[in-house]
Amino acid sequence: MKPSEEIIRIDQVSYRYHGRIPALDQVSLSIGPGAKLAVIGSNGSGKSTLLQIICGLIHPEQGTVFFRDRPVSERTLRDKAFLKFFRERVGFVFQDPDVQLFCPTVLDELLYGPLQLDLDEKEALARAGEVMQMLKIEELRERPSYMLSGGEKKKVAIGAVLTMNPEVLLFDEPTNGLDPKTQVFLLELMLALNDAGKTIVISTHDLSLVAELEAQVAVLSEEHRLEKTGSAAEILTDEDLLLKVNLIHEHVHYHGQTVHTHIHSHYLFHKH
């Protein structure tokens, strides 16, 4: 991918928590505008860390992240103009919506972002209304966030990011802890937003979500390196790779007196 075709470029990024625990090791990746990218890997492989680095919430020890060819670093984000430019274009939906919701009511939550962007209140209210309608949360408008269910909190957290109209949406483990209906709703929402031109980046170990999203896939290994990138079809049929990065496992069970061993995932493989 040529630099002009990239919206985000991650160049040789390494990160360690507390300067000691490795989370990412020399990861390089390019994301084009309007792309769908799923970062997959087992627990602790560094998926969430990578998303937080892309969003400029934490900063790599080595390597650089570029957004539209501009480096995203602690120093550049101290520039008010660049911070505004970056934050209004890159939105982050946290795994735990509880940490993301801090305003008194759902409506305040949806208005927070637009008001930060200096939109007038009328326009901000119009945006909030449209987003509530799309997410089917209009009846929650005056409710405080602690009075919401898990699925409702997730919708409000997404809505709070959407009212800022970012170009790039980063979803950290989006379907974790959600009921099947909300999971489907979320999947359809991500597809619709992508159709509308948004770049979608998710971190997940839910292989069915990756397949349904038909995303490009970046696989992180347990050694925190980028193991492979490719299309969903290409990655999800590579049993050796998925076994290696611990996203599927060998499963032993009995059929009467006969012992069977086969590769098993909760989505793709259950061969005999």
């Binding site: 946290f94 940490v99 801090f102």
Partner: peptide
């Protein structure tokens, strides 16, 4: 938790 709250706010702070 406090640190996560801070990061979540940081992600939406444009100035």
């Amino acid at each position: 938790t406090v640190y996560d709250l801070h990061l979540a706010k940081k992600s939406r702070l444009t100035g």
